[in-house]
Write a protein that binds this DNA or RNA. Structure first.
Lengths: 258, 258
DNA sequence: GCAAGTTCAATCATCATCATTCATAATCTT
DNA sequence: AAGATTATGAATGATGATGATTGAACTTGC
């Protein structure tokens, strides 16, 4: 086998598993232990993997995490995401907040000719190579783990832009409005709201009644909520009487291929 | 068989498979090993394919193989990247330009407690989950394929920040200064230069003598250049007499462009 | 703390791939 | 058609990659 091809396969396997033992690579690649060792040494010194005793671990996001995140996106989130994406028509300009649900929404946006603005690194990475989507990234301090840009730079950038619709996530919803756990995040999301004509909130039904550290905005700032059918009629009425349109995404969808 | 016909068949096969071994081409084309080698050399220097030991891989639009995770850079780029990373000390604030070489530099920055600012989506994705690196993204219009943020938003963001050092890439270097192919990119890079104390250019030796569409800046804006040892002593002297420090990284084999 | 078992880096002989050279064949010029 | 130019294929030595072996460094279990 060609050397580069073998090294690519090592990276592929490492990415998939997060960690590979040397022995596994030996048997999977059909190369000798020495050769695999040399490959690992090379990939380590080039910064792709981190050698450890007995094998090597992948640097950066292991795919297992990624897939976990995807499958952890519950059926409810998938439904919400799909329904939300259906609300968006060709040619629109959409501002996408960070979050797992909004990431699922982004997945469903591919194929539409639209303009997307976002402060989420995972969403941007996802849409980067899609020629039909014009992507604008809202920069700022990148919050670890979530990969969302926040802070003064983000707020400044948001002051200069405008979009037709905001797809926003939240930590919790009560009659007093929306909440989130992080003050920096709240500051950024407030500016997002000011930058758009229409605010669409995506929130699974567990978020209703939840409070969090920082108050984000009153209900009147939100135009519509897309949620799943686990929301109580009580909450539904409260929201509707506050003037919000409720979009319930249910199981009446096409079954997801196994 | 006609020369051009054989070469276009090589391209065809390479495009289809992404990678072809030399042996396969020999048996598929019925030409001798020497001839196929010569063809590969030609197609490599003309930029269609990338020769590797044992075969060649197709380049076509595979620039979108900007997949931060799995891409394997050439040895020259690796050397340059490693040496450049060594120039950066703990606690520094570094502004990283987009580009394949700077991406490799980013790979070698892991483990250092530093602050990184960048407008490159692949670099940001790579460094996102590294707790020791404080990451700030310079937002803007995301240029397809390369994943670099450009334009007015980027320039505005750059106006507000400051860093100790800029690691910059370029399309070409002559005595008149640096060049790049894209006007938007040039505009953004100019602002980058203004935002830092010290400019470090990373450029493999093939860039010397190359001009491109847009003039980026004079040589006096650059403080040091990290390149590979394929650079001629002539160019080296020209750069040094212009007051630039030349840092020559590693190895010996460099293809001479046709 | 010791012994058995792993894992590792270093070395070496072997093999594959590569750049170079040269003689010959094909193609282009005039 | 003769001479010049270029392409081809085989041969050669140089360089790089591979796999086996060895003793050192490390882990594990007691």
């Amino acid at each position: 086998m060609i050397v580069d091809e073998r090294r690519s396969r090592i990276l592929q396997i490492a990415e998939e598993l997060g960690f590979v033992s040397l022995q596994r690579l030996v048997s999977e690649l059909g190369a000798s232990e020495s050769t695999v060792r040399r490959d690992l040494e090379f990939l380590d010194s080039s910064g792709h993997i981190q050698r450890t005793r007995g094998g090597a671990s992948y640097l950066g996001d292991a795919q297992s995490d990624f897939d976990a995140r995807r499958s952890l996106a519950s059926r409810e989130k998938q439904w919400i995401a799909k329904r939300t994406a259906e609300l968006i028509s060709e040619g629109e300009t959409v501002l996408l907040d960070g979050g797992t649900t909004t990431l699922e929404v982004a997945r469903h946006l591919t194929g539409k000719t639209i303009q997307v603005l976002t402060n989420s690194l995972p969403i941007a990475s996802l849409l980067m190579n899609r020629p039909e989507i014009e992507l604008i990234f809202i920069g700022g301090y990148v919050y670890p783990k979530t990969g969302v840009a926040l802070g003064e730079l983000s707020v400044d950038a948001l002051r200069k832009i405008h979009a037709g619709r905001l797809i926003m996530s939240t930590g919790g919803i009560t009659e007093e409005g929306l909440f989130n756990s992080n003050a920096l995040l709240v500051e950024t999301e407030r500016q997002m709201i000011r930058a758009v004509d229409r605010v669409t909130l995506v929130a699974d039904s567990s978020k209703f009644g939840q409070r969090a550290l920082s108050h984000l905005c009153p209900l009147s700032d939100v135009d519509e909520i897309v949620t799943d059918d686990g929301v109580s009629s009580e909450w539904r009425q409260r929201m509707e009487s506050a003037g919000l349109r409720m979009e319930i995404a249910g199981g009446s969808l096409v079954k997801i291929a196994k």
